[in-house]
Design a protein around this nucleic acid. Sequence first.
DNA 1: GCACAGGTAGATT
DNA 2: AATCTACCTGTG
Length: 296
Amino acid sequence: MIQSETASFRPWQNWLEAPSFGEAAFNETIDGGQAFRWRRIEDYFEGRWGQSIVRLRYRESGIQWSAPTSEQPEKITGALSTYFALDSKFEELTDALPWRSDQPLKTAIDAFPGLRILRQPFGETLFGFLCSSTKQIPQIKAICEAVALDIGEALPDGSHALPGWQQIAEAGEARLRAAKLGYRAKYIHQTALYLAEHRNFLKETESATTEEARKRLMQLPGVGRKIADCTLLFGLGRLEAFPIDTWVQKILARAYGLEGWKTEQLQDFARAHFGPSAGLAQQYLFAAARAGLIAA
DNA sequence: GCACAGGTAGATT
DNA sequence: AATCTACCTGTG
């Protein structure tokens, strides 16, 4: 992997507005499957979204950040505020979840205090989860990296941003296949062609009700209920969205005794049981299951 | 070699 | 309406 340019990074600075993270929740929030463009390097994580390149590291005293010297510090902290959805009070939302009468959820919350739902750029979130079907997280990351390198614009440090939908439409399906997308390449290219033709589609989706936004997303090729819900949750902050993947299905079956329930029934259960922040509960359970703390 | 992986769409029953 | 199945590719 050749980087044509290198950029110097700022000295580490305390992220004064940082939310209160436990270390496990910090790791899980940025590198637990919500986002696919973070990698761990030594004692820090380096991540990219939009035009942003940010390094973060956990310290007992709080979170510290760094970024290429070419970027204004205020721009970075502003981007962080949005990305980490600082306007949402996840501590309060967590307390309002039914953990008092739900042992698996209590186990998960105790293990990941401070876990958050990211608010990523909408289009990038859609792209990431269109890549995700029957793929493991390391492979999804590798695909995103390959697509960025081939099609995305260069960033100040010589790495690449994810391409926009217009760029993906122009690049064509063959180059997506070359990034190991397999059968997903066709869906993604067809979606790109549609979004390139309907420039306001995503913007209008962002301002729609969650139900309407889900319907709109599911019109796109390759976007079913699960990918739509992931996009709504991790890209739009719609915390009521409750993506049911193979993990969550197993968790609900084994830890909640819902063996044999259909996805539609599980959706109803999740809404009734977990309430308006069901998606946050989903993320706690997903994290705990991956860590082997609850049955899955 | 073969099952399986943060699914979806189209066919078949 | 519920239940198969094909679809790419990497990994164990």
